[in-house]
């Protein structure tokens, strides 16, 4: 049913993603799909990496570790953005096209008051993506 599952990951908060990662891996096994881990970073140095190349390297290492631990075929797809705080949603939507994913599995927080003003990234991606989106809360 699904061939490629895209999982947006925030390397700085990978510990919060456990449920989404497990869910994506289970679905990948069930449907025989492969997983693409997408990471978005600014070109400026960040807590994860000093350069975009280093960031891509760390994301690839993350994907390899996931593939080994969960026994699924997985690759990484790193994207740069000028202003990730604001441009995250459109960047992720573009990544859906770039990776050719047909399902997005992403973690999100439980909606609260601020979601009326700033919707969660999961909510926005689900509202605008052309493919299926599973938001894991």
């Amino acid at each position: 049913m699904f061939k490629r599952i895209m999982v947006p990951v925030d390397l700085a908060h990978a510990d919060r993603l456990e449920r989404a990662l497990t869910c994506a891996a289970d679905l990948a096994k069930h449907y025989g799909a492969d997983v693409v881990y997408v990471g978005v970073a600014a070109a400026t140095p960040s807590s994860i990496a000093h350069t975009p190349a280093e960031f891509a390297g760390k994301l690839a290492a993350f994907a390899d570790a996931q593939a080994a631990a969960r026994g699924i075929p997985a690759v990484a797809h790193a994207v740069t953005s000028h202003d990730p705080s604001v441009d995250l949603d459109p960047t992720l939507l573009k990544a859906v096209d770039e990776t050719g994913a047909d399902l997005v599995v992403m973690a999100s927080h439980i909606p609260n008051l601020t979601d009326y003003v700033w919707p969660s990234n999961g909510g926005t991606v689900a509202a605008h993506a052309k493919v299926s989106v599973l938001v894991v809360r």
Binding site: R4, A43, T51, P52, A53, A60, V75, E98, T99
Partner: peptide, 20 residues
């Protein structure tokens, strides 16, 4: 392009630079 989605979104290689 979906076949090798490794790191194509990144402007890379960055080339030589003097990282501190």
């Amino acid at each position: 392009m979906a076949e090798t989605p490794d790191t194509q979104g990144i402007p890379q290689p960055e080339g030589a630079s003097d990282l501190i």
